[in-house]
Each structure stands twice: as C-alpha cells, then as structure tokens.
Design a binder for these strands. Structure first.
Lengths: 342, 342
DNA sequence: TATTTTCGTGCAAACGATTGCATTAACGAT
DNA sequence: ATCGTTAATGCAATCGTTTGCACGAAAATA
C-alpha cells in the first residue's frame, strides 16, 4: 500500500493539512513542526501522489509534446532528439516533466492532443513541427490552451507564440556564400514543400540569386521526400540537365548525406566538382566524407527557448499576443564547399 | 470550466455512476441508455479528467521512460529516436502514453524515476540503457514495480525482464565475416567499456578470433568515448601500430562514421585499404560514403518488444521470473567491406 | 398469482491530495 | 482582568472519477 499524507500526519502528530502546507513550504507553519513533519516523511518514504495533487491543484507540472505522426520516418531525424533534449532540460529545471502521445495517422495524433488537453493531463504543449493548415494548432488556439510551436506556424502566425530560426536569412546567406566562392550555377534541393522550413529556405535562396544578379532557374530547384529516395532522384535530375549546377544548397544535413552519397556513386567529387552546403549542423555533419559545411541553428536552443516561452505563458493569466523568438544561426565551414572564400 | 461527468449525467438524465459505466462500456448498462449518454458526451464535448480517473482507478495508462542523463550526448544517437518510436507504437496500440523525466546528473535521473514510481505517475517503466551497477534498476527491482530494460542489465539479470540483441553472437558473426573476406588482422573499436553492449560485442569478437585460429592482439582492441573524439584517436592509434589492421569492427554506426572520416583524412581508402563493419544499421549507414556494411538489429523491434513485455507484466498479478527476449539480427552488406565473400 | 431471478440504475464512499475558514493559544495593550 | 491581535494548526469541503452495494421493476419460474 502506498504511504499517504495521512500516514505522515499521524506519524508526525499533525493534521493532513499541515503536512500539505509543509510540502508547499508555507510560511504559516512553524519551523519546529516543519522539521518534525519532514522527518516523518523521510522515515515513511513518503512521496505525494501526483494525481491527487493534480486533481486538487488543477495543475499537472507536465508539458505535452506533439510530434509528427510516428509513421513518417521524419522522427528518425536527429533533429528531434536534440530539440527534445533542449525542451527537457528547461522543463526539468522548472520542475516540469514531459508527456507524449503519438499516433500513426495524423488523425490519431490530433485525437491524442485533444485528449491530453481536455483530459487536463498537461499544463501546456509544445508542437514540434509546422505544416500548412494544421488542425492541432487550430485546436490549441481555439481552446486558448498554452502552447508554443517550434518552427513557423502558417496560419495566423501573429497570434501564436513560436520560436524559429531565420530560415529565410540563412537560405540567403548560404547562397551568397556559394556565389562568393565563385559559383554561378547553384541548385536547391529541399524536403517536402509543405514544410515551412523548406519554403523559407528556398525563398532566401531565390532572393540571394536575385540580389546577386544570378538567374533563377526553376529546374535547379527540386524537392524530394528525403526518407524514401535519399535525394538520389534529385541529384540525378540535376546532373542530367544541359547545364548541371556546380553547387547545391540542401535543406537538411540528412538529405545532404544522401545527395553526397549519390554524387559519390556517380563519381562526381565533392567539393571539386560540386559544392554542397546544408542546414542544421547535426553531429553527423562533422563526420561525413567530406565533412559538411552547414548552418548551425542551435536545435537544442530552439527546444530550450520554446519551453521557456511556454512556461512564461503558463504562468501568466492573460497571454495577449503571440511572441516570436528567433534563435541565431551561423555557418560552420568545413570541406564540402571547398577552400575558403576566393 | 471543464465539463465533468456530472454535467453529462444531468444532460442525459442519469447518475454519474451510469456515465462512468458507459465510458467503461459496462455490459450492465442498456444499449438505449448508452446511446443517450454517448450523445450527451458528444454534445458537451466531454473528456474524462485523467487525474480523477487515475486516482480512483489506481492506474495511469502511462509508461515511464528512463533515458541516460541529458548531459551525455548519448541521446543524440538516433538509436533513441528509433527505440522510442517502437515503444510508442506499441504503447499507443494499447492505449498507453509515454512519460519522461530527465536529469542532468545520474542522481537527478534517479530521483526522477523514484518520484514517478512512488508518485504513481506511471504504471510501468522501460529503462533505455544498461550500465554496470545501476541504482535505477536496483530500485525498481526492490520496489517490485513493473519494468523492463532494453539491453542487458548486469546485476541479477535472471530476475529482470529484458529485451536485447544477441550482441555476442553478432560480434562473432561479423568478425568471422571479415575473416572470410580474407582479413587476418582485425581490430575492434568500441564505445564506453561499461556499457553491456560493448562488452558483449567485444566478447563475440574475441571468440570468433579464437575459433578462427587468429591471435587476439590486445592492442587491436580500443575503446573510445565516441562523442568527444569521434573515434579519431582510436584510428590513429591503430594505424600507428607496427602491423596496422586491415579490417575493423566498430561497435556502432555513429562511431563508424567517425572512424571512416578519420581514415579519409589519413587517405586510407575504405574498403580497399581498410574494411569497416559496424552495428545498428542506422539509416545513415545507407548514405555514408561508402555505404556501411552493418548489422541490422531492429531497434524499433527492441522498443516494441520491450513495451509488449512490460504490458504483459503490468497485467499479470504475479511476475515470477525475468523474461528474456532476443530480437534477431542480420548483416546488411553494403560497400564498406569490399566485394562479396571470397 | 406468488416467488425468485435477472436487469438496469442510483447512492455514497472511496482515491489522496489542497485550501478557505474556523479555532485555539499566547501575548501585549489597555 | 479584559480585549484585540497574531501565529499556528485543524476541520471539512472539494477536485472528478470509480465501484461495491442496495434497490425497484420486469421477467422468469413454480
């Protein structure tokens, strides 16, 4: 049997309410009593039942995580481990723990979110992806439940709090970087087009081309669902063009690996015949051959900041408008683009 | 305000207890009433409060996850995403959700586990790592709380349920495989020595050498904490030996990437001058250059099976002895060991 | 028709905390 | 000696469910 607050009360010769106040460290309890009670708790090995507490309290000290559906292999991207590490670090610091449901289909994850919100299982939610036209975000917004999204939400983004990288800027920067290295024919290989991040990065890419006075060649822009083909199709398509590019911006390290692997098969050497730059600076970027030049976006920080915002939001009564946090990024130059700037 | 069971009861003109029985789909309630109640629930948008339910029920429908401390970068290994995907799939199928605490230090994760167990926040726990002499496993065992570990627990493993790969066998097999390819000087590069998995794999490696009549050369066996050096030291050490190996068994794909990257820097070509084989068959194995020959250990399956065992264990009153599940593995031949067997 | 079963539902007591309000004792101040 | 004040603690209601037991009505049996 579990040892309850009553047991402690009896042991310490006080009322349960007193024990409760000792737990909350209320100033209304004398020091002497506090010590007596604490000792009793210690002796009996008392731990408060979280459900009783949540029920009385109307608070759970838990944060819900919404992940993309388990079916999509997106989850295999180390991005998620890292962002979760950030979330859980901040959460832990503030005494929150993490709670996750998943589902195979999109509908299932939606149902999971609804029941964890309505069932009051968590105090707030962080949404780990952003897709166009998402029911989950809509729901959270409608129910006025505290939440923040990692990445840029599409709909009504002015009213939702989110933390993101300036992907547009980053896209612009890497493209310019390639131009500075002397490349004129620069392609873009991205993931699914309905991810905000892809759109932003490609947007920055195009802007940079324009700003640098380079033509925008639509056949240089390909997108491929990474996990199925590994970007192999994309590369083959690009290389079969009349004027193949000499450099490529890849929207994700994982995909860049696939791209380089395909190039390798085709005996196109990186960086000599093809420069590759990508984003996220996952730890594998360091260990690929050649090591990847990639944009460090501080994934851990994204998670950490998001949680920070969420906690703020949960503590304030009125959350008026969405807050927007941009986590800074910077380019980490390794070897996939060749030497230093010309 | 939340809509409670009483609201539904009032709306449907029944007692709260009846509503409760409808939720549980008790056969004692007539079909007609059930429908009336269900409609009321629908109309009011009722969702049961999980804490009230857990409190009355003494059950939480949640499974706790114990991860290595967040400080160690171990977490970045895609292994975890994948095993969690397996866990969460099975969990979801059975109506369980996932709950995780983390901590920076080992002591913190221990405290997290204790309070989630004693606080009755979860019905069972899956432990995602196994280290020598671990307090967490000891605690769970002492409190007779349902748990299963992924990987082989050290202490008293006959009494704890675990699911694992036959790492010993796998280590043996890959070593023999290399020998079959004609290699006589085979090295082993592993991660931290106090991980069960490292010990097992190296054990299999040694056995294979013996069985094949090859000498065991202790200087061929190096272990390196991956995340700091990426195995670079290990490679350099090996290559500076009087008789450097011609093949190497690496205990993890991540590390193999680091090894290959270092070899690449040293202009030692894989597989021509050095064959590399590793374990886990992470998706990056497919996209490295050259693609890695690796042992597929079905990480998803490990998580899935573990959860399966856990659920079994939670449903039975008496869990007598530890159960042991071995998930099968097989070698996936790619290019890091050169052509096919001689 | 009387008596026993069966069926469907309601009552009220848990589950283990929190918290507003009441109570008591001690202590100065008048 | 009496009367506020304050400090420390206890009482009891509450949070939203579940569930054992009781109860009445209908159906089955004699």
């Amino acid at each position: 049997m579990q040892v309850t607050i009553k047991d402690v009360a009896r042991e310490a010769n006080v009322a349960p309410s007193t024990v409760s106040r000792v737990i909350a460290n209320s100033p209304r309890i004398s020091q002497k009593t506090k010590e007596r009670v604490r000792q009793a708790m210690e002796e009996l090995g008392y731990y408060p039942n979280v459900h009783a507490r949540s029920l009385a309290n109307r608070t759970t000290q838990a944060i819900g995580l919404v992940m993309p559906s388990a079916a999509t292999k997106t989850l295999q991207n180390p991005f998620f481990s890292e962002v979760i590490r950030g979330i859980s670090t901040k959460a832990h610091q503030n005494g929150y723990s993490l709670y996750m449901t998943t589902g195979v289909s999109e509908e299932e994850v939606y149902e999971g979110v609804v029941s964890m919100v309505q069932g009051r299982r968590v105090d707030g939610v962080v949404v780990l992806y952003s897709r166009t036209d998402d029911k989950v975000v809509q729901f959270l917004q409608d129910s006025k439940f505290p939440f923040v999204v990692v990445g840029k939400p599409f709909s009504d983004s002015s009213h939702v709090t989110y933390v993101d990288t300036d992907n547009y800027l980053a896209g612009r920067e890497v493209t310019k970087y390639l131009h500075q290295l002397g490349h004129e024919c620069i392609a873009f290989v991205g993931g699914s087009q309905d991810l905000a991040v892809t759109q932003e990065r490609v947007g920055g890419y195009k802007t940079a081309l324009m700003e640098e006075g380079l033509p925008i060649n639509e056949s240089y822009i390909v997108s491929a669902p990474f996990m199925t083909t590994g970007g192999a199709d994309a590369v083959k398509r690009l290389m079969s063009l009349e004027h193949p590019p000499t450099a490529v911006v890849v929207s994700d390290d994982m995909m860049a690996l696939g791209v380089m692997s395909t190039l390798n098969e085709m005996e196109i050497s990186v960086p000599d015949q093809m420069a590759v730059v990508s984003f996220n600076n996952l730890f594998i970027a360091e260990f690929s051959s050649p090591p990847l030049t990639s944009v460090e976006i501080n994934i851990f920080g994204l998670g950490f900041e998001a949680t920070n915002c969420l906690i703020e939001q949960m503590n304030e009564e009125a959350t008026p408008y969405g807050k927007r946090v941009i986590v800074p990024h910077y380019l980490v130059v390794r070897q996939s683009c060749g030497g230093t700037a010309k």
